[in-house]
Amino acid sequence: MSFLLKRFAFYLVTAWAAVTINFLVPRLIPGDPVQALITKQRGQMTTEAVRSLYVLFGLDKNESLAEQYVHYLGQLLRGDLGLSFTFFPSPVADVIGTGLPWTVGLVGITTVIGFAIGTAAGTVAGWRRGSWADALIPITTFLSSIPYFWLGLVAIALLTGPASFFPAGGAYETGLVPGWDWEFVGSVLRHSLLPAVTILISSVSGWILSMRNMMVTVSSEDYVTVAHAKGLSERRVMVAYAARNALLPNVSGFALALGFIVGGTLLVEIVFSYPGLGLQLFQAVGAKDYPLMQGIFLIITLSVLLANLLADVAYLALDPRTRREG
C-alpha cells in the first residue's frame, strides 16, 4: 500500500504545482488584460463576481503576494473559478461542468481503447518480427507524425457531407433533448464515431511502436527462453510470459504520456465542433477569456492526475513486485 500512498502524495504535490502555476502566470506577466475585460463588463457584473476575478488574477495591488496566494487557494477550494467572459454571465465552473462529460466520454474512452488496441497489435508485431508484421512500422510512423486535428480535417472532407452517415460536427442532432432514450444515445454515438476513430488512428500507432520494442526486448529474457524450452504453446509464451512483462513499462508509459495525448485529442474536439473542454478552450483563447482558460487547464490537469492514479492501481495489480505483503 505504501506504493499507492507515495503516488498519491506525488499527485497532491503536482496538483499544488499546477494551481501555483495558474496563480503565478497572470501575476508574472506584465499587463492586465483581464482588467480591461472586467471594465468592459462592469455594468453587468455583481461586485462579488468582480471581487472573485480580482483574487484570481491578482488585480488587487494592495495585497502582498502571500496574502493573494492565501485568498486564491481559499477561493479555489470553494470551487469558485470566476466568471466566464465568453459565456457571460455563467461561472467558469458551470461552463466546465457542461463540457467535461463530453470530453471524458470521447477522449477518455478512446484513449483507453487506443491503448488496448495498440498494445495488442504491438504484441503481435514484436512477436512476429521479421514477418509481414514489420510492414506495420512505416505506416504507423507516418500516422503518428500527423497532428490529430489534421487527420480530423481530412476525415471530415472525405467522409462527411449532406448525404453521409457521419455528421460533420456537434455531439448530437440539433433539436434533440438530452436524455437516456434510444434516439438521443444513438445520435450521440453516431456523432462521436468519426472523432473517436480520428483519435484512435493517431494514438494507436504510438502504442504499437512502444509495445513492439518492449516485446523485442523482453523476448530475449531468460524466462521467455525457459518458456520455449518448456514446450508451452506459442500463444502461452507470447501472452503469459512475453507480453505480460512487456505490458508493465507500457502501462507506466501510458500514465506518463497521458498529459501529451490529452493535449492532442482536445484539438479533435475543435475540428468536429464537439462540445467538450477542447472546444471551450478554443473559444476561450479566441475571446481572451482568461478565467475559462485557467479553469480548463486546472480541470484537465486534475483529470490527468486522476487517470494517473488509476493507471497506478492497474500497475499495482499487474506487477507483484510493487505489492508488499503484511
Binding site: 525457459v226 505480460r244 506487477d319 513486485r321
Partner: peptide, 12 residues
C-alpha cells in the same frame, strides 16, 4: 539455466 534470477517469470 545460468541466471536463476531471470529464469522465472517475475509476474507469475
Amino acid at each position: 539455466f545460468q541466471g536463476a534470477m531471470n529464469s522465472l517469470n517475475p509476474v507469475q
